[in-house]
Design a protein around this nucleic acid. Structure first.
Lengths: 102, 102
DNA sequence: AATAATTGCGCAATTG
DNA sequence: GCAATTGCGCAATTAT
């Protein structure tokens, strides 16, 4: 079961083989390249992820600061503390301080 | 240059071959598996990314709302508008300046 | 029908 | 010495 040595021993057989070998090489190159690209993609996405997480952390921080300011303000109102030296009478019925969210 | 038919025509040669073939198969399986895993990783990271972006969008929105509130407050002070009836709620910027971005 | 691409498989060389 | 990895070619199958 080696080869029907006849027919395709040389000639256009060899030629087909050669072409195929070439195609094979090409195909495998692509395949490898793709794998590398995918790996690369992973790295990029990881970086992107870290950036986003950092941004989230930052925004969260900012938010919490602002919210705290609001709370403080609310407390001041509740404690009947006027914003400035203005002697406007402060008859502000204290309202509930909304809690933190989320 | 076919084969040094002597020595290694059968026997332990065949055995070595067999083992190697096995090893080759194994190795290639792993390789493929790894590639798939990497691809999978990409997908996961993409999802994660979208989640993070969404979160960022949300936080940004919240922040801009709060900031607008502050601005409004500041303007009120500047315009000497004393704190009027304090609503019991604090989550509806239904008044004043709208549409600041970023 | 013809050609290119992809895939499983085995060999041999190399590496660890 | 041995398993793992790698480049290479063959042949079957699939896609164009």
């Amino acid at each position: 079961m080696k080869k029907p040595s006849a027919e395709k021993d040389s000639d256009e057989y060899r030629q087909r083989r050669e072409r195929n070998n070439l195609a094979v090489k090409k195909s495998r190159m692509r395949s490898k390249q793709k794998a590398q690209d995918t790996q690369q993609r992973v790295n990029e996405l990881k970086e992107e992820n870290e950036r986003l997480e950092a941004k989230i952390k930052l925004l969260s921080k900012e938010l919490s600061v602002l919210k705290d300011l609001f709370l403080e303000h609310a407390h001041n109102l509740a404690d009947n503390v006027p914003p400035s030296g203005t002697g406007a009478d402060g008859a502000s019925p204290a309202t509930g301080v909304n809690g933190h969210g989320q």
